[in-house]
Design a protein around this nucleic acid. Structure first.
Lengths: 170, 170
DNA sequence: CATTGCATGTAACGCGTTACATGATTAT
DNA sequence: ATAATCATGTAACGCGTTACATGCAATG
């Protein structure tokens, strides 16, 4: 039920079309909450039906510009403050760890080594993104940088864990 | 497509019924890959159709004991070594961060404070689990402890991030 | 004999992914 | 002209959740 709130959240910064939102997703939420175009268009339709957004303008090529309604803003705030974030995080990377006894110790170490590398690369990638979004004083940029810091810290922690884990296997 | 491999992985340690597997899930994989009873029974049926597991015994109350087949073991190993783990991790906790400008700074700090607390509690809970599974020399216990260490490190990192983030908001 | 535990399944619904389908407008 | 970009949608399929349905066997 969170794509709904992701869309509401982006619209809380100003009106936009589905197409605009899709681009916004790519540069902001994509690492936190990936969404596909199909999904987004469908969700905008449902949001409009529910009265949480309105179509405020229609442009060329059938463009529909959506704006959040007062009810939508209320719902967004309610979701932020009153709904407990889900705890369950599925990780197929970690799931494999449980079954490493089924492959040779060499391969198992190889697996963990590769995960350490991937996490390291991910951290570097995020450092790059940080350089790119350093300016930007709009809400999404300001809080996006806080979210980015999260990604960085988690990636580094994951890398260190994988390096540690690799050494545990003898 | 990972519940399939979770089931294969558990069966690689020995034959078990759906009911047994469900209990095993609860004490081992539940933090990494939650699964419901419906889902598991359905998946066992599909695995049997695909020849990756066999029904090796039928007991009282319609109990069916499943065992992994050589093909199943091959598939499990292929999945571990040849299939790249998914990178995308959705986090509705982090998604909310992007939209914190929509609530007051006090509330925003409150949100982050609460997340720090929750992560701290989660870390403590995992410390407790660690005390509980310290012995245990079977594969699942050995690798489960490595997975547990992951959860611990990530929880601590998350806690520290949330504490840091709270201070960023003025 | 009643409760608890063992044991398996079905049905409905929503979210997410992939692929497909269509067409208008702008820039070169 | 034609290619790139803008722009919206539909359809099929799979995974995951929740709720429901059923019944046997062991324990006290």
């Amino acid at each position: 039920m969170s794509l709904r709130h992701a869309a509401l959240g982006l619209l809380s910064e100003g009106p936009a079309s589905g197409y605009d939102l899709m681009k916004l997703f790519e540069v902001s939420l994509s690492n936190t909450w990936p969404a596909t175009q199909s999904q987004l268009y469908a969700e905008l339709g449902k949001l409009a039906d529910a009265g949480l957004v309105d179509v405020v303008a229609e442009g060329p090529r059938g463009r529909k510009e959506y704006a959040i309604t007062p009810e939508g803003l209320t719902e967004l705030r309610r979701w932020i403050t009153d709904v407990e974030p889900a705890r369950a995080t599925r990780s197929d990377m970690l799931l494999r760890v449980f079954f490493l006894a089924q492959i040779s110790p060499e391969r198992a170490r190889g697996y963990l080594h590769r995960q350490a590398e991937l996490s390291g690369k991910e951290a570097e990638r995020l450092e790059g993104v940080r350089g790119f979004v350093e300016s930007g004083t709009d809400n999404l940029s300001v809080y996006g940088r806080i979210a980015l810091e999260y990604g960085l810290r988690i990636s580094r922690a994951q890398q260190e864990w994988a390096e540690w884990a690799e050494e545990q296997i003898r």
